[in-house]
């Protein structure tokens, strides 16, 4: 896209730095993969875990077939993430759009109203009672509705909207578009990269959530993936001092397999979001 052919010193430094940074991340992740496919003896004898000396997918098949039900929890996680992200994006977009109108009377009050809970909250007990009163416990609504809006994301989006050229909106308004139409036909299309970013934030937050699920879900059948994985990975740590007998429990290889299983869906979905981050989305936009 940039018409420049020289590979300058700056380029060299940037490439070097980025590749080094990426390598620093790849190596430990590679170790995780190597450990997850090692046999017990190889795992104990090997100290570095960089070269795979044995290969077995036993731990993976054990994890996927476990009574804890990774497969079922995976579907719950997907449902929560998809439903949650949709509802979050709807509410956040509307909120951000309205608050981005600088001339809206009472905007400051509204904004303060939105900002205040970012700092002050009543804590867990009233929240728990609320969720129970609304009969949301043990449903996917308990994992989505209470966190549907992140003020943090809303503010980012609001400022992004505010930074868009006003002329586009004016033009649409002169064409007789309603506010909702302006939002859908003008704002949304030119904001695709930011939409992708914010939905990524929401999606990742829903996907990674662990706390809400442990608080508001009480049936094993409704637990999302992160709870199941986390139980497999860290459960043993919690009980360490009691020393109540727990046979062989989960070996390191199994835990690493669980970590890899948790990352695969993310890797699969990511390219679809990434493609919105490419340049030139604005090409069709009207210039001021």
């Amino acid at each position: 896209m940039f018409i420049q052919k020289r590979f300058s010193v700056i380029d060299f430094l940037i490439y070097f730095f980025l590749i080094l940074f990426a390598l620093m991340i790849v190596l430990p992740v590679w170790q995780i993969i190597v450990i997850s496919t090692s046999s017990e003896q190889v795992y104990i004898a090997d100290k570095v875990h960089l070269v795979p000396r044995s290969f077995s997918l036993n731990e993976y098949s054990r994890a996927l077939g476990s009574i804890g039900g990774i497969t079922r929890s995976l579907f719950i996680s997907i449902a929560v993430t998809v439903f949650g992200t949709c509802i979050s994006m709807m509410l956040t977009t509307i909120g951000a759009f309205v608050l981005s109108k600088k001339d809206l009377p009472g905007r400051k009050a509204l904004f303060g109203f939105v900002l205040f809970p970012m700092f002050f909250s009543g804590g867990l007990v009233p929240f728990y009672i609320l969720i129970r009163t609304l009969h949301l416990s043990d449903t996917i609504f308990a994992l989505t509705l209470p966190v549907a809006i992140s003020t943090y994301n809303l503010v980012i989006m609001k400022n992004y909207f505010a930074g868009q050229p006003a002329s586009l909106e004016e033009a649409a308004r002169l064409d007789g578009c309603s506010e909702l139409q302006i939002l859908m036909k003008v704002i949304v299309p030119i904001s695709m990269p930011m939409f992708a970013a914010i939905s990524l934030f929401y999606g990742v937050a829903y996907w990674n959530d662990y706390f809400l699920a442990t608080m508001f879900i009480s049936s094993n059948k409704m637990y999302p993936l992160q709870v199941v994985l986390r139980q497999m990975i860290i459960q043993n740590l919690v009980l360490s001092q009691v020393g109540v007998r727990m046979e062989s429990s989960n070996p390191e290889q199994f835990k690493m397999a669980c970590i890899v299983i948790g990352m695969i869906p993310v890797l699969l979905v990511y390219p679809f979001i990434q493609k919105h981050f490419t340049k030139g989305i604005m090409l069709g936009a009207v210039k001021e």
Partner: peptide, 11 residues
């Protein structure tokens, strides 16, 4: 880190 299964210790 220890864990209750004493996996790392026994390894």
């Amino acid at each position: 880190k220890r864990d209750s299964a004493q996996g790392p210790e026994s390894d």
